[in-house]
């Protein structure tokens, strides 16, 4: 396992797994996993109806994530600093040239 993979795994164990229990206890659900007979439509109104352009700088990552989660998802705020640190640790120059034939690339 590479150094980067070890850091990513460590983040998963130290920061994500403990948060899972906290979120579960608080009844937080980030998305529905199936049909809901109680609603007429599955469309939702956009957060911002006008297309938006912004800047994203790695040095501003912590501030940007704080702004993103402060109101809507305060339970995620403990992840901000560790994520910003991880982003600095993981910086790479390039990604793989080929794609998996088995899964749609989602990130």
């Amino acid at each position: 396992m590479s150094d980067h993979e070890q850091r990513i795994d460590r983040f998963f164990d130290r920061h994500l797994l403990p948060l899972v229990n906290v979120l579960e206890a608080a009844g937080v659900r980030h998305f529905p996993a199936g049909a809901d007979p109680g609603v007429e439509s599955y469309y939702r109104a956009p957060d911002d109806p006008a297309p938006a352009l912004k800047t994203i700088e790695p040095t501003e990552l912590a501030a940007d994530l704080t702004a993103l989660w402060a109101t809507a998802d305060p339970a995620l705020l403990p992840l901000v600093e560790p994520l910003a640190e991880l982003a600095m640790d993981l910086r790479e120059e390039e990604t793989e040239a080929t794609l998996s034939p088995f899964i749609y690339v989602m990130f």
Binding site: E5, I8, P58, L86, A87
Partner: peptide, 20 residues
């Protein structure tokens, strides 16, 4: 965990640094 490994490398290792 496997998805997180792949996603973290792509997002935190590369895409967050796209401007630079």
């Amino acid at each position: 965990r496997d998805n997180w490994r792949k996603a973290a490398r792509s997002l935190l290792g590369i895409k967050v640094h796209a401007a630079r």
